[in-house]
Design a binder for these strands. Structure first.
Lengths: 210, 210
DNA sequence: GCATGGTCCTGACGCTGTAAAGATTCGGTT
DNA sequence: AACCGAATCTTTACAGCGTCAGGACCATGC
């Protein structure tokens, strides 16, 4: 193509992208899942979306804001995955709790790069990204609810403690499993079962199966 | 100072630094603890050590190798802190286990940036940095030993499960606490007590005090 | 006294995030 | 239909980054 500057209008990409914001989020996520969170450069994202390097700044304040949007999408998907598992688990609260924990760990294991991005400490700072905060908060609720239902008569302190224990255990497992570091201790090929075994070690409810 | 090139020898820094490797590690750690792991630039580290930007390459293969050295130092300190806590805890295995978990979480809370650096996934890849791997491995042993001593007659599977549970719980607490995210659930001002309460929720041994 | 090799510096390359200024196009108002 | 403001996108530019090549310095061993 000898004439680069005057390509026929029909073949040239339209000046206005149309859905650039969504395209940037998708491209950033794809790159993050391929090369890890640190492999994401704003310029590469822009290239992948077919726009100039400065175009993203019309949709995101800076690079962190774009990554925060990706993370928020991740939390929404995490929430959806948790709700689906809870639904499938049926009515027993402890059963549901174990399903939620397994879902949490499984999500991290299935999308390690995305999970790592969601855990990036730059975005933890509450108040910095409101949409992210909201999505994160909402993603944690199913777990807290299930814990509360497991301990109907307990004091608030007891419930809070149990909630912290479950969350910490699931979070720790999620991180260790997503990095493959739990491999020497538990069978990562059947992560649901492994999570079950660990959650059962918590004094949350009388574990029926044993 | 009009004559920049011919400063008197007595006032000029010696051409050979003397202890550059250690100075670089210390500078990198100081910057990481002030600005976070991502705030560390090789050039800034070199500036802080009073050498040129390329000098570090005579002591470290690349930036990651320097950060890995900082992380290894962190793991050695973590191990020392854990051993000290175990020593102070006395003879009861479960008491020692709780002290170790509290030490683990306390370390992360006291040095959040260093802990975050140690958990950087780029360094998790086993075999990439041998000294780091060794230091990390060794830092985990006290916890595993204490768990084993808590369950003297148990099967290997049971001990491994308990070990994974303790490690996951402590690790999750460490990360959540070092980011301050556990604040809504537990009292971060008395982290030892909070860790105690959570570890007690594990069916590791009959918790005596209740 | 001189060569060797380790330690350090200067300068350069291509990459990054981001700002400023101009071009293009859309939507709504005359 | 003509216009204008606002939104979107491009070009250009700057400083800082990790890293490398080539040269300067100097402690050590012959």
């Amino acid at each position: 193509m000898p004439d680069g500057t005057m390509r026929p209008t029909a073949l040239r990409a339209p000046y206005h992208h149309g859905g650039l914001e969504a395209a940037l989020i998708a491209a950033a996520r794809a790159i993050a899942e391929r090369d890890g969170p640190d492999g994401v450069s704003l310029r590469a994202v822009a290239r992948a979306a077919g726009v100039s390097q400065a175009a993203p700044y019309h949709h995101f304040a800076d690079k962190d804001a774009l990554l925060a949007a990706v993370a928020a999408e991740g939390f929404r998907e995490l929430r959806a995955a948790l709700l689906a598992r809870a639904e499938a688990a049926g009515g027993d609260p402890f059963e549901r709790l174990r399903a939620l924990a397994a879902g949490y760990v499984g999500f991290a294991r299935a999308r390690p790069a995305l999970f790592r991005l969601m855990e990036t400490p730059a975005f933890q700072r509450a108040g910095a990204y409101r949409a992210l905060d909201a999505a994160r908060q909402k993603s944690y609720l199913p777990l807290a609810d299930a814990v509360a239902e497991c301990l109907p008569g307990a004091s608030r302190a007891k419930r809070v403690n149990a909630c912290a224990a479950v969350w910490s255990l699931a979070h720790g497992m999620a991180i260790l499993a997503s990095d493959g570091r739990l491999g020497g201790l538990v069978d990562l090929s059947d992560l649901d079962k492994a999570t079950d075994a660990l959650i059962r070690q918590l004094n949350i409810a009388a574990a029926p199966g044993a």
